[in-house]
Simulated scan of single mutants.
Amino acid sequence: MPTIKLIATDVDGTFLTTKRTYDHARFARQLQRLQAANIRFVVASGNHLGHLQHVFAPTPAVQTFIAENGALIVDHDQTLFADPIPLPIVRDVVRAILTDPTLRPQIFRLSGAHGTYIAKNDHTDAQASQDYYVNNPVLVDDLLTVDDTIYKLNGEWPDQDSKAQAATLNARFPHQIHAVASGFGSIDIIAPHINKAVGLTKLAQAWGIAPSEIAAFGDNDNDLEMVRHVGLGVAMRNGTATIKEAANLITPTDNDHDGVLNVIDAILNQQV
């Protein structure tokens, strides 16, 4: 197997425990070893940039983020790539979803460059979770009036099968969007040509790194393209059956038992 030169990881259900923590001291030591070995570390998540920067603030050496499922890449506060959803398509999709009782989610959000837009009349059953993930909320009377660069739409369908609902959305808006289950009844809606693999490819090409020289960790359907694309695709033991089928390796331990950190050690020790 080629030498690994880049490690990319999803965050929720993957790098973080179910209590949204990670071993700061152990990971900081790993980052030093990764730097010494010329292995780059990248965060690849469906979350917005500000949230990711907050999560990794305890380990400031982490400075490269593939956010919004690949639609935004930032390295050391410099935007390397941005591919938002065209605003006319955003408005068409929002209008169609919110006016169709069979499609309407419990809550709908637009993740933009200047905030996460939420309709004032929408309410979530998981307010604490929303407060955690959305640290830039902007309450609006009507999502159709939002005028911003929109990277992602996100909705909660807690009473639906997320994969089936995502398939329904993709069938309803062919060639306009790519809807994918992102966990906990949530579905991310991004541009049809965007996913984490696209973002990771652009970043790796800028650094002269081949796909075969990348290891990527994920646990859910929005990680599929990334895990399939790289030389060492790693699925979490706690991941979905789909991601496990796509992976080259399943972590021996789950996200609550340092699944990612254990495999990083194995990579550093040339045991995988």
Rank of each mutant, 00 (worst) to 15 (best):
P88Y: 00
R95P: 08
D92R: 15
H51E: 08
H54T: 12
A82N: 09
E68W: 05
I39G: 13
A37T: 10
Q35H: 15
P86Q: 04
G115D: 04
I97Q: 06
F108W: 00
R40E: 07
A113I: 00
I97C: 10
E68D: 13
D83M: 15
L31N: 14
N38A: 11
A37P: 12
A57F: 09
T59M: 03
G50W: 13
A113G: 02
Q53D: 00
I107M: 06
I107V: 10
Q30T: 11
Y117N: 01
F65E: 09
A71C: 10
Q32G: 11
Q78G: 03
I107H: 10
D75W: 05
I66L: 05
R40C: 08
I66M: 06
F41S: 15
N47W: 00
V94G: 11
P84I: 01
I66D: 07
P101W: 15
V93P: 08
R26D: 12
V74D: 11
P84G: 03
L110G: 03
P86C: 15
Q78I: 01
V94T: 14
V62D: 02
L103A: 08
T102A: 15
F65I: 03
H24E: 10
H76S: 06
D122G: 07
V43F: 15
Q35G: 14
I107C: 06
V90P: 09
T102P: 11
F108K: 01
V93E: 05
L72Q: 02
G112L: 00
I85H: 01
I118W: 04
H51R: 04
I66N: 05
D92E: 14
D92M: 14
T64S: 08
D75R: 10
G46M: 04
V94F: 14
P101K: 06
A44C: 13
Q32D: 14
S45W: 11
I39H: 08
L31D: 13
S45N: 13
